[in-house]
């Protein structure tokens, strides 16, 4: 594991109109690191990771992803987006395309791969998320857990260096959470750099190198998972943990 940061945020601020969502964020992620971001709703955790691939625009400060600074330069944004995969809470698969088309579309048009190559890799990743038998179906015919696994495979098809997960399991029925987390764990074991907004504390303990706790637009505490869960330092962290862990 190298120690140079693959993501770096320096004094980053973001407002939604008058509302100061992210306040002076300083944050580094090294290559291969797995980070779990948690915090109460409205604390800015989703916004934070959405800034990394510019789904949200930050107003000041710097965000540098893999050596490229995020500015209004479209070329840079496209370059970064091709390297950063993302999974959403509501999967956001393309309902009018079959599963394999969902996966092959971006590699074919963004990475300019041949159809054969794109489809082969699509099948490889579907295999990996144990869903290759559904390749010709449509998103609407799959269960939530299956759809989220497809969404992960879709992001992986772009050969990303970083994967962002925005509450990937919170829209799922409880019995489907595990199948998605299993895929994420195996991805972590392969050394993928991951930033995950989640409240799955078991997952955090198992794979995270670091837990980042956010509240009110600020990073309140950063610690190793065992340290964070067993011995939180801040009042807000303690309060939050007591609420979710009972």
């Amino acid at each position: 594991m190298s120690t140079n940061p693959i993501i770096e945020m320096k004094n980053m601020n973001k407002w939604f109109d008058d509302f100061h969502v992210l306040k002076n964020i300083n944050f580094k992620v090294t290559n291969g690191e797995k980070i779990v971001i948690c915090g109460p709703s409205g604390s800015g955790k989703s916004t934070l990771i959405r800034c990394i691939n510019r789904l949200e625009v930050h107003q000041n400060g710097k965000i540098i992803v893999d050596g490229t600074e995020l500015t209004n330069n479209l070329k840079n944004i496209e370059k970064i987006r091709a390297e950063v995969g993302m999974c959403f809470q509501h999967f956001n698969l393309f309902p009018h395309l079959s599963i394999v088309e969902n996966l092959a579309l971006a590699p074919m048009w963004v990475r300019k791969e041949s159809k054969k190559e794109a489809v082969e890799r699509a099948m490889h990743f579907l295999e990996k998320v144990k869903i290759s038998d559904q390749a010709l179906k449509y998103p609407g015919q799959l269960s939530g857990g299956q759809q989220q696994r497809v969404a992960i495979a879709r992001a992986l098809c772009m050969k990303p260096k970083i994967m962002l997960f925005d509450e990937p399991t919170s829209a799922l029925d409880p019995e489907m959470v595990k199948e998605v987390l299993d895929v994420m764990v195996s991805l972590a074991e392969e050394g993928m750099t991951m930033l995950c907004v989640t409240h799955e504390m078991g997952f955090a303990r198992q794979v995270a190198d670091r837990v980042v706790f956010m509240d009110d637009g600020q990073i309140v505490e950063e610690a190793k998972p065992d340290e964070f869960f067993d011995n939180p330092k801040h009042e807000r962290s303690k309060e939050f943990l007591s609420q979710i862990l009972h």
Partner: peptide, 22 residues
């Protein structure tokens, strides 16, 4: 839904590709 635009953006599709395919 907004999520469709976001998913296309996150995959790196440009404006015209997003409109045409998604």
């Amino acid at each position: 839904p907004k999520g469709q635009y976001e998913a296309a953006d996150a995959l790196g599709l440009n404006y015209f590709q997003t409109m045409r395919f998604i």
